[in-house]
C-alpha cells in the first residue's frame, strides 16, 4: 500500500552476459531494502528516444567489495533478457554509466505464517523474483509483523513498509531476528525454459536450499516438456490434494510463481485443482511504476478477494460478476493472489 521509493541517480557497476541474450546487471545504489517481488524502474539517464523507464524485478541486493582496496559498495541486481529497446540500451551500458533508478516499488510476494512448503515456479526470464524469494526464505529472517526497522541510510524513516513480512535488509548485513522467526520447512523450485540456456539461476536456487526440478521444452536439460507438468506430477506424488488442503485450511503449501502468461494461467489452474494458495508476479506496460499513470492495469475478478490471511478465503468462491475491474500492476501488485486474476 504505502509505496516508498526513491530516485537514485545510480551508476552501472557491472554487467555479465549469459548466452545467448540474458544479462545480469548491477547498479550501485544506497542500501536498498526490498521485498522479493518488488521492482525498480530503470533507464539510461538522459535518453529521450528511449523515453520511459522499464520495470525490472529485483533479483538481489548486496554489498560487494570492489577493487584491491577492499572498498565496499551496495549494488542492486537485475536479470533480464534482451527483447526490445529498453533492454538493448541497458545491455550496452558501460561501468560508470548513469541510469535513472527508482525503487523499490510495488508489493512483493506475501509470505504468510504457517506455510510449510514454499513451491517456487519460474518460467524463463520470470526467475528473478522467485530467486529473490528463495534467498530470503533461506536466510530465515522474515518476521511475522516486520516490527524491526533497519536503518537504511538517510531515507531510513521512509522505508518502513507497512505490509512487509520481511526484515528488509540484504542477506549479508543483518543479524537474525530471534523469536519471531518462522520459516518454510521445505522449498521446492520448478524452473522451466525453452532450452537449457533459458533455465536460469539454478545454482542460486540450489544454494538457497531448494529442491530443484527443471524442465525444458527441447529436452536439453531436465524433463522434456513444460514446467507445469512437473509441478502437477510433484503435487500428485507428494500427496497434495484438494481435500488435504481444505483440512489444513490451505496453510500447508503456497505456490509463488513468475513467468510467461500461459505458464501463470496453467499454474493458477493447478493451484485451484489442488486448492493450494498461489501468488503470481505479473507484468504490464507501465510508464511510471508508482500508480500515477494508471497504464498497467490487470483485470481482476473482485476487489475484495485479495485477503489478508490467505487461509481464510480458500473456500470462498470468487465472484463471477460481469463487472470488470482493474488493479494496478505496479501498486496493487506486481504479486497478486492467483484467484483474483480475471484471465
Amino acid at each position: 500500500m504505502e509505496d516508498r521509493g526513491w530516485i537514485v541517480q545510480a551508476e552501472m557497476h557491472s554487467l555479465r552476459r549469459f548466452e545467448p541474450d540474458y544479462f545480469l546487471q548491477r547498479f550501485t545504489s544506497p542500501p536498498l531494502a526490498f521485498q522479493p517481488g518488488q521492482f525498480v524502474m530503470v533507464k539510461p539517464s538522459g535518453s529521450l528516444d528511449l523515453f520511459l523507464p522499464r520495470a525490472y524485478s529485483i533479483l538481489r541486493v548486496q554489498r560487494l567489495s570492489t577493487g584491491s582496496r577492499g572498498k565496499k559498495v551496495n549494488v542492486v541486481e537485475i536479470l533480464y533478457k534482451v527483447l526490445g529497446k529498453g533492454t538493448t540500451a541497458l545491455s550496452q551500458l558501460k561501468p560508470g554509466d548513469r541510469v535513472d533508478l527508482l525503487g523499490p516499488l510495488g508489493n512483493g510476494y506475501h509470505v504468510t505464517q504457517g506455510v510449510t512448503t514454499a513451491i517456487l515456479v519460474a518460467g524463463g526470464i520470470g526467475v528473478p523474483p522467485v530467486v529473490a524469494l528463495a534467498e530470503r526464505l533461506a536466510s530465515s529472517r522474515f518476521t511475522v509483523h516486520g516490527s524491526r526497522r533497519k536503518s537504511v541510510g538517510r531515507r531510513s524513516s521512509d522505508t518502513d513498509r507497512r505490509s512487509s513480512d520481511f526484515d528488509e535488509t540484504s542477506a549479508s548485513s543483518v543479524e537474525p531476528l530471534g523469536r519471531a522467526v518462522i520459516g518454510h520447512r521445505k522449498m521446492v523450485a520448478f524452473v522451466g525454459g525453452k532450452s537449457s540456456t533459458d533455465a536460469l539461476c539454478l545454482t542460486d536456487l540450489r544454494k538457497a536450499g531448494a529442491v530443484l526440478h527443471v524442465a525444458t521444452e527441447d529436452g536439453s536439460l531436465g524433463h522434456q516438456g513444460l514446467v507445469t507438468d512437473l509441478l502437477e506430477s510433484y503435487l500428485r506424488s507428494s500427496g497434495h490434494s484438494a481435500e488435504l488442503s481444505r483440512s489444513l485450511d490451505g496453510h500447508r503449501s503456497t505456490i509463488y510463481a513468475c513467468g510467461p502468461h500461459p505458464m501463470l494461467y496453467a499454474v493458477t489452474q493447478i493451484a485451484e485443482r489442488f486448492q493450494i494458495s498461489c501468488q503470481l508476479s505479473l507484468e504490464a506496460e507501465m510508464a511510471c511504476g508508482f500508480g500515477a499513470c494508471m497504464g498497467c492495469v490487470i483485470p481482476v475478478k473482485s476487489p475484495e478477494l485479495r485477503v489478508e490471511s490467505l487461509g481464510q478465503s480458500v473456500n470462498r468462491e470468487p465472484s463471477t460478476v460481469n463487472e470488470r475491474r482493474y488493479k494496478l500492476c505496479c501498486k496493487d501488485g506486481p504479486a497478486f493472489d492467483a484467484r483474483e486474476i480475471a484471465w
Binding site: F51, C296, Y326
Partner: peptide, 23 residues
C-alpha cells in the same frame, strides 16, 4: 469509469501514447 482495456501505454520517440480512458 473503468477505463480502457490494456495495454494503455505505448512508448514513442521522446514521448508516449496513452489511452487510459478516464479511469
Amino acid at each position: 469509469r473503468l477505463g480502457n482495456a490494456p495495454p494503455r501505454i505505448a512508448e514513442t520517440a521522446a514521448g508516449m501514447l496513452n489511452s487510459i480512458g478516464l479511469q
